[in-house]
Design a binder for these strands. Structure first.
Lengths: 348, 348
DNA sequence: TTGAAAGCGTTACCAC
DNA sequence: GTGGTAACGCTTTCAA
């Protein structure tokens, strides 16, 4: 099959020599087959196969100045929304002849910057970025090098196209759901106020509460982080309160926190959903490993990815002078599950 | 901040001119700062900053013939095990100064081949591959170009290092769990016999059944695919059977199928875990969106990723003549949840 | 310590 | 149609 290991890969010139044609002809055969006589083409292809030749994309990008690679850096693929986004973007990219390269920033702005730099150095055609905070600096760097950036899931001052989900509506839907299920005393649970989606969700929650008039009592408990462990730790006082003293609904600002909270409550003997309804907000299936399935809000990741890649491709094929940045907003949807469905009403 | 958009990015020669040194000196400043006089270095760095210079990695890779990028292609990141693998690999790669680039083959051998080709063209240093079937062809191609490949989660004839989880043990643990929980009539549920992990799991199931003597009645139902929808469709006859006629335990060969099966059973009025215990096998949190939390087997993805990247880095730094391929096998662990925990025994 | 110059593998333009 | 040949931007060796 494969001959001896050719430590040095075959080059176009090797193919040319073997096929008995010139280097330029091989290049033509590769890039504009129609401009080459069929017989010659065949000889070239035979030589390519025989040598196991694989074109060097680095040289190619260097020579042409263009690349068919698009980079995507997301907060963390541990959050399944970003996996969905990646899948949606991937699909659209491939259909258009582009490759999507993925990198996870692991929740760190520095790491995000390193990956942006990496893709910049790799001279990708464009970048999809799902940041966690104002990333004008990173966006600006790419843009000043002529590489378009589309932001996802973040609304900031950056000068770029973006696709977001209406996070105020996320909070609104969540709060209204608990109210409709009979909660009169709701605790908004979780930290992360430095993250924009969380801020918006809080605003939506407020709107739902106001709509419900004075009927609802609300307070807030902060967690130290957004992990299940943080949720479990911070829920202890609530779990320890007397039945009459504790909230009947826990609105968690992320799914990860919700899972931890449920674990903490049940450990302390508070039943979910029997004694308290609990829900999450961000459809992070990766977090769904608790004992109870979680009501949450679907973030439509697939569509975010598809839309964002669509905007990027559009920008790629439009003269910069004619391009106008756009902002697309998608509506979230609630997904009701066991954690807010007390036994009597529970589907069997 | 950023000046006019320099449609053409700054090159080393631009930096050299601005700093008043030669091109070679700038390159030295970039790659061997210690060999450059501090004052010169500073002038160079100022120029770099001023011009917003970003090194062209394509040119660099082309000139040196080496790359600090490693590619990973996995079946699909919709399966959370592969996300875990990627995170583990990422961590180890970065610590060693490598970048990990991710691509999802979306369950298609062709797509996998295209990404392998892509990484081959990009001249990555090495490749992590989580294939779904014999990929000797892809492995061989990379290997013959001097690029090491480490396989993950697959045991095939390929000539390469690999990290696998003991899938026979997966099946064994699953079956023994159901037996211990009192099941006497178990249906092994799901298709995918063309996939190696599934084959191994079946073997382990058989071993557990044999160990239990003649006490256990077993049969098998095939699904048409591995999706929740396939599981839901195929479970209909079981759900329709009279209580005395149906199994008391359903051992699903993947989590995705299990979720579908549970949905189908409950829709038909069969309670899980009340009337029947159901479990999955592959710890795919992405599938966990049913009404009941799922007992499953943890696949230790993080460790697979870390170990595989470790092997790859080792191979990268060993002369090919001295390298000997290794196979590392990790032991799975069971995670018990609601779908196999009937009410009486259920933790509250 | 710095500079000049020869590649790295492709592409693309221009002759033939 | 095909064959030269000059870039592309960087690294690295060798001299100065």
């Amino acid at each position: 099959m494969t001959d001896q290991l050719p430590r040095r890969p075959a080059r176009i010139s090797d193919v040319a020599r073997l096929a008995g044609v010139s280097l330029g002809t091989v290049s033509h055969a590769l890039n504009h087959p129609s401009r080459v006589r069929p017989a010659t083409l065949e000889r070239v292809n035979d030589a390519i196969r025989e040598l196991g030749f694989v074109r060097n994309a680095n040289a190619s990008t260097l020579a042409t100045g263009r690349s068919s690679n698009i980079g995507m850096v997301a907060i963390a693929f541990g959050n399944s929304m970003f996996v969905d986004i990646a899948r949606g973007a991937q699909r659209v990219a491939r259909a258009a002849g582009y490759n999507l390269l993925l990198a996870g920033s692991e929740d760190s702005y520095d790491t995000q910057g390193q990956f942006v730099q990496f893709f910049d150095e790799a001279r990708v055609a464009g970048l999809l970025l799902a940041p966690m905070e104002d990333s004008s600096e990173h966006v600006g760097r790419m843009a000043s090098h002529g590489r378009p950036v589309v932001l996802m899931n973040y609304d900031g001052p950056e000068d770029a196209c973006r696709v977001v989900v209406d996070n105020e509506q996320v909070g609104y839907l969540a709060a209204r759901h608990l109210i409709e299920r009979g909660c009169r005393r709701i605790t908004v649970f979780g930290g992360g106020d430095e993250f924009q989606p969380v801020q918006f969700r809080r605003r939506g929650i407020r709107r739902a509460i106001e709509e419900a008039g004075n009927a609802i009592e609300v307070d807030a408990v902060s967690t130290d982080g957004l992990t299940p462990a943080a949720g479990e730790a911070a829920v202890a006082p609530i779990a320890a309160a007397a039945p009459g003293e504790r909230p009947d609904g826990l609105l968690c600002l992320t799914d990860a926190i919700a899972i931890g909270a449920i674990r903490g409550l049940r450990t302390a003997g508070v039943d979910v959903p029997g004694d308290m309804l609990v829900m999450g907000c961000d459809h992070n299936t990766q977090s769904w490993d608790g004992d109870v399935t979680l009501t949450t809000i679907a973030m439509r990741g697939l569509e975010i990815g598809e839309t964002a890649m669509g905007l990027l491709l559009e920008e790629l094929t439009t003269p910069p002078s004619e391009h106008v940045h756009r902002r697309v907003e998608l509506e979230p949807r609630i997904e009701v599950r066991a954690s807010t469905t007390p036994a009597p009403a529970r589907a069997r």
